[in-house]
């Protein structure tokens, strides 16, 4: 069904805004890392913006998501504030996790984002348990968990697909196949076909063009509807491409610059812009304004994060978060 066609222009523009915010956020983070303004490491999702906008865009507010370590864009997609995410990257106490989580663990409970696991496939079984709880609590919601082509090979993913099917729980597995698990090409390390393997668990599984925001929106909408009404899992293999390296220290020796150019030409943002122009939803001028607005928001977020980065938790305050009763040992 064409769920996208049924949405109004406001929604269609909202998806676009999220893609732009994600794009400019990641570009800015990349720049700040290069300049040494952020410590630690980060995994950027440039090129995967269609998924960032459409996964959460097709879900309800009360549906949970669990992104991967490449999770900034999904944080934005689910409604998270770029101010608190940027502040978290700068490790201040105004960050979403008060500086205790960082890039890989942006938990945002009020927007129903459980945060990422830094362990590849670590969140996949957790999502199954969350969906189990939702079913027990008689909620008509789903849990969407992101995983990559690398995570698909983890035993934990295979166990989770089986468990989700035999327990019959409403979880949407959103596999962002960006062709590489760090440096390992899926073509070399994934046996068979991801969608077929997932489908072999008697789970509905589809393969889509993950750089087409409309296609992703339709697939997730259908998955959600099915998962909620049937209380069953659903699997989406969303084919996309990671423009930058795995993390900030990746020299990308395992692929050619030509290949990267090829995929950059399939840019999900540009493709959606063409649609918005051709369908008369936005004019060239308006598109320009949205770009400027998104860029400005990121600049404002950086300035907020820089201004507040001096506010940090003390060791004693951090200890209070080890146990939920606040005990420090």
């Amino acid at each position: 069904m064409n769920y996208f066609e049924k949405t109004n222009d406001e929604k269609k523009i909202r998806l676009y805004e999220i893609m732009l915010t994600s794009r400019y956020f990641e570009e800015k983070v990349n720049e700040m890392f290069m300049k040494g303004l952020i410590h630690g490491t980060t995994h950027l999702g440039l090129g995967q913006e269609a998924g960032h906008a459409a996964l959460s865009g097709a879900l309800c507010k009360e549906d949970w998501i669990l992104p991967t370590h490449r999770g900034h864009g999904h944080f934005i997609g689910k409604g998270g504030s770029v101010y608190s995410m940027m502040a978290e990257l700068l490790a201040g106490s105004y960050g979403i996790d008060k500086g205790l989580g960082g890039s890989m663990h942006m938990t945002d409970v009020k927007n129903f984002n459980m945060g990422s696991s830094g362990v590849v496939a670590g969140a996949v079984p957790i999502a199954v348990g969350m969906a189990f709880a939702m079913k027990k609590q008689s909620k008509d919601n789903v849990v969407a968990v992101c995983l990559g082509d690398g995570a698909f090979n983890q035993g934990m993913t295979q166990e989770s697909l089986n468990l989700a099917r035999v327990w019959e729980v409403p979880v949407v597995f959103f596999c962002e196949n960006n062709l590489y698990g760090m440096s390992a090409p899926a073509s070399k390390f994934v046996a068979g076909d991801i969608t077929k393997r997932a489908g072999s668990y008697d789970i509905r599984a589809v393969k889509i063009d993950g750089n087409d925001v409309i296609e992703v929106y339709n697939a997730v909408s259908e998955a959600r509807e099915y998962a909620v009404s049937e209380k069953m899992p659903y699997f989406i293999e969303s084919k996309t491409y990671r423009w930058l390296g795995h993390s900030k220290s990746d020299l990308r020796k395992y692929r050619t610059r030509e290949e990267e150019e090829y995929y950059k030409n399939l840019c999900p943002v540009k493709r959606y812009e063409e649609y918005l122009l051709n369908s008369g939803i936005l004019t060239e001028k308006e598109i320009q304004v949205y770009h400027e607005k998104a860029q400005q928001e990121i600049l404002d977020a950086v300035s907020f994060a820089e201004k507040t980065r001096g506010n940090i938790l003390t060791l004693e305050e951090a200890k209070k978060y080890v146990y939920s009763g606040g005990e420090d040992r």
């Binding site: 079984p125 957790i126 969350m130 969906a131 166990e159």
Partner: peptide, 16 residues
């Protein structure tokens, strides 16, 4: 599937 059902229990606990 000890790994998956124990992790699933973590998910259940996160949900209350």
């Amino acid at each position: 599937t000890e790994g998956a059902f124990t992790s699933a229990a973590v998910g259940m606990a996160l949900m209350g």
